[in-house]
Amino acid sequence: MTSPQAKPLVEISDLHLSYTMQRATIQASRGASLTIAPGEAVGLVGESGSGKSTLARALLGLNDPKSTRIDSGSIFVDGTDVTRFGERDWRVLRGSSLSMVFQDPLSFLNPVMRIDRQIVEAIPKSMRAEGVSERVDDLLRLVKLPQAARRSYPHELSGGMRQRVLLAMALASKPKLLVADEPTTALDVTTQAEIMDLLGELRQRLGMAMLLISHDLGLVSKACERIYVMYAGRTVEWGPGSSILKTPAHPYTKGLFDSARALRLPNGLFATIGGDVPNLAHKIEGCPFRMRCPLAMPKCTTMSPATQVLGQDGHWVRCWAAQDSGIAPAQGNDVKNA
C-alpha cells in the first residue's frame, strides 16, 4: 500500500516557519520534513510545544496569514507547491482535498448553530446535487451518530459525539487527506478507543490518507504505518512504526517511549525526560535536544546532526550519537529524573 515510489500526496521538505506573537518571533518549524503517500496513515509525535500543530496547520494554510511566514522550504500537496498560496487558493484545497479534525471538539464547534447546519456547510457545492439532507444522513451513519443528533446543539452532545460531528464535517468533502490534531486528547479512555477504531475503519473504507498528531507514541504506533518524531520544530526520527517501536534510534524517541510505558526506575520514580522543550523564540546552535540528552557530546553543541538512514526500511534519524546505529533500546538511556 505504501510503496516509496508512489507519488506522495504531501511532501514537506526542510520547512522553516515562524510567527510573531507579542513582538517575539517564534520559529515553530526549523527543518521539518514529512511525506505522506496516498492512502497512508502517518503519525506525528512530540511533546507540547514541539511544533506539531503548527506544522499540521501549515499543511492546510490555517495559521494566521498575518503573523505567520514561511521562511524557507516547501510544502507540496498533490504536486502543487502551496507555500505561496493565498486564502482563496487555500479555500479550494480545504474544501476538497484536505480536511482537519481538532483536539477539543466543543470549542471547535459553533455553539449557537445546530449540528446539521454545521455539517451541511462542509459539503462542497459540487456534491450537493444528490440532495443535502441525504448526504448529511450518509455522513452521520458513516461516523455512527444517531439521526437524533441532527437537530442538537454542540453542548447537548457528549465529547465522543462531538468528535464524531467534527469527523463528519471533515469527511463531507471526501478528502484525500485527513489531518487529525490530537483528536482524542480531550476524551476519556473508552471514548478514545472508540474514536481511534472509527478513524481506522473510515480510513480503510474511504481509502484516504491520514496524518495523526499526538503526544502519545503508543496510540500513534497502533494506528499508523509510519511515524515521525518531532522535537523543537524539526523532525528528528522517522520510519515504519514497527521499526521505530523496536529500535528507536534517537535518545528523545527512547525517552518518549519510557515515559509512555510509565517505566519505573530503580529508585521508584517514573521515567521522564528531564528539562523542558527549548523556547522556540531563541536561536539554537547544534542539536536542540543536547541539553536534555543523556548521550550528548561536544560535537552536539556546535553542529546540527546530519540525517542518516538506518537499515533498509526507510528508518531515518538525526542524531550524532545514533551514528553507529548499534544502540539497543534500553542501553545508554539512563533517564534523568525531573
Binding site: F102, D104, N110, E121, A170, A172
Partner: peptide
C-alpha cells in the same frame, strides 16, 4: 476555535 473550523471547511 470554531472560526478555524469554518476556515478548515473552506468557507
Amino acid at each position: 476555535d470554531f472560526v478555524m473550523t469554518a476556515r478548515a471547511k473552506g468557507l
